[in-house]
């Protein structure tokens, strides 16, 4: 049986202008899950609920098979978190950051931290405010890895990073889950990153769960259908999601299960980005 490191069941949280509702998904041990959705879809709210920064109104969250509230302290010993921006005091040096954070973890490994800051080329005496965004991300990762976190929760970590740093960041994550004992929940709207590393995708749309499953399942679920204008029948128009029409023709997203009826049309395999773009229309 697959062991899930993270399980959300029917989670609900309401704000005056937004409701996150009926969110159910699970992340198995040893895999990377991409949490996607456009801005305001509920990705950060979901992460804040997992971390108990927000109080859920309904539902259940289990981490490592335990209730995330009842065993919060114990669970967080094995969770590493990286947000979209630095959350350490900017006056701390890299060395002082270790000093301040390490006291909270039973399994803090000083040699591993030393090794990681060397590997990530983080100057030990540099202040956090002097580090680039990419380096601040690496510092958060170094802290997460040094207490032997089994579940890494990343909230838009690659937004604002240059392509080379992003690539390096993704490599670090791939390396991290190599032993099959660790999992990553990775919220992002840069879906190209997920094409590379994600095993599972959870797609949120306007606060609702739109899809959760393997990346392949999502990509196999849809096709991009293309044709010239006169081929666009009323039936087809109704089946297409995010129809885009030009003088030359049309294109849009169509469910794979319906494509048998449209054999003469051009059918392309979409990317995650394509799915998000068409679904957002």
């Amino acid at each position: 049986m697959t062991e899930n490191y993270l399980e959300l069941h029917n989670i609900k949280k309401s704000f005056s202008d937004f409701t996150l509702e009926d969110i159910t998904f699970s992340l198995p041990k040893g895999f990377i899950m991409g949490l996607i959705g456009s801005n305001g879809a509920g990705k950060t709210t979901t992460i804040n609920l997992i971390l108990n920064m927000l109080e859920k109104e309904q539902g259940k969250i289990e981490i490592f098979g335990q209730d995330h509230l009842k065993n919060e302290k114990q669970i967080k010993q094995s969770i590493g978190v990286v947000f979209d921006s630095n959350f350490f005091v900017d006056a701390w040096t890299v060395k002082e950051t270790e000093k301040a954070i390490s006291i909270f973890y039973d399994e803090w490994n000083h040699s591993m931290f030393q090794e990681l800051i060397k590997k990530f080329e983080l100057p030990a005496n540099a202040k956090v405010r002097e580090l680039s965004r990419g380096m601040q991300m690496k510092l958060m990762l170094a802290c997460a890895f040094s207490h032997n976190a089994k579940l890494l929760i990343l909230d838009e970590p690659t937004s604002g990073l240059d392509p080379a740093t992003r690539d390096e960041f993704l490599e670090i994550l791939q390396d991290y889950i190599k032993d099959g004992e660790k999992s990553v929940l990775f919220s992002t709207h840069i879906t190209i990153d997920l094409e590379r590393i994600a095993d599972y995708i959870t797609y949120l749309k306007h606060g609702r769960l739109f899809f959760t499953g393997s990346r392949e399942q999502l990509l196999e679920k849809y096709f991009i259908i293309k044709g010239v204008s006169h081929e666009l029948t009323d039936d087809l128009r109704r089946s297409i999601v995010g129809l885009r029409q030009t003088n030359m023709g049309f294109e849009g997203l169509i469910e794979a299960s319906t494509t048998k009826q449209y054999k003469g049309y051009v059918l392309d395999v979409p990317t995650i980005d394509d799915i998000m773009i068409y679904m957002g229309k």
Partner: peptide, 13 residues
């Protein structure tokens, strides 16, 4: 420094 996020990540009540 947005330390609320740091507190939320630490194993503390």
């Amino acid at each position: 420094n947005g330390l609320e996020r740091l507190y939320a990540s630490l194993p503390i009540r």
